[in-house]
Amino acid sequence: MFGLDYSWLSDPVYQGWLLRGTLNTIGLALASSAVAVLIGTFGALALSLRIAWLDALIELFVELFRNTPPLLQMLFFYFTLSTIGLRVTDPVTGLSVPLLSAFDCALVSLSFFGGALCIEAFRSGLESLPRSVNEAARSLGYSRWGRFRRIEVPIASRICLPALTNILTNLFKTTSQASVITVPELMYYAGQIYNDTFRTAEVMLLVLLIYVSLVSVLSWGMSRIERALAFPGYGKGH
C-alpha cells in the first residue's frame, strides 16, 4: 500500500517541468516580497507622520488584506480587474485582452497581501521603541527626520526582522495558491505531472518536500541575517 513509485522522475520532461516550476515559484516569491517590503516601508513611514486621514486609509487597506483569503484576493484580481475595464487592445490581433496576465495578477495580489502584513509589522516595530530613546535623541538636538533616519529606523528594523522573516516565509508559501489562477509555478506543474502519470501521492510528497526545503532555506538565511545585524549584547538584560 505504501509502495511509492518514483520511476516517472527519470523522465527529462517532468524534470524540466519541476525545475521550471521551482524557478517560477522563486521568481514570484522574490518579486512579491520586494514589492511587499516597499509597500510596508512607505506605509509605516506614512503612519508615523500621524496624519489622520492618511492613517485611516492605510489602516483600511491593511485590515482588508489581512482579514480576507489571499486565494480569494487573487481570484478577485484575476477575474474582475479585466471586466471592470483594465483591458488593452492587442496591436497585432486587434482583440481586446486583459491588461494583466495571470502572473501579474498573482504578483499584484501577493504584493498587496504581503505589503499589508509588512505595514503592520513595521509600524509595531517603530512603536515598540522605548520612548526614552526618543527623548535622548531629542535632548541631543536631533530633528524629527534626523531622529527617524539615524535612530528610529536603524533600531526598529532590527526589532522587525523576526516578524519580517515570518511574513516572507508566509508569502513564499502563499505563492503556491497562484496555481489556482494558472500561474505556471511549482504547484501548477505538479498538477500537470500527476494528470500525466496518475502518481498523485508521490508527486505531492515530492512537491511538499521541495517547498519545505525552500522555505527552510529562506528562514535559515533570514535568521543568519538577524544574527549578523543584531546589536552585541542587546536585549539580554530585559
Binding site: 535622548a136 531629542r138 541631543l140 538636538g141 546589536f231
Partner: peptide, 23 residues
C-alpha cells in the same frame, strides 16, 4: 524642534535609564 536646536546644544541631559543607542 528646529528652534530648540541652539537650546539642545547648550543644555545636555543624562537620563536614569542611560538611553544609549543600542545600535
Amino acid at each position: 524642534e528646529k528652534e530648540m536646536r541652539p537650546l539642545r546644544h547648550r543644555v545636555a541631559m543624562v537620563f536614569q535609564q542611560y538611553n544609549l543607542f543600542p545600535h
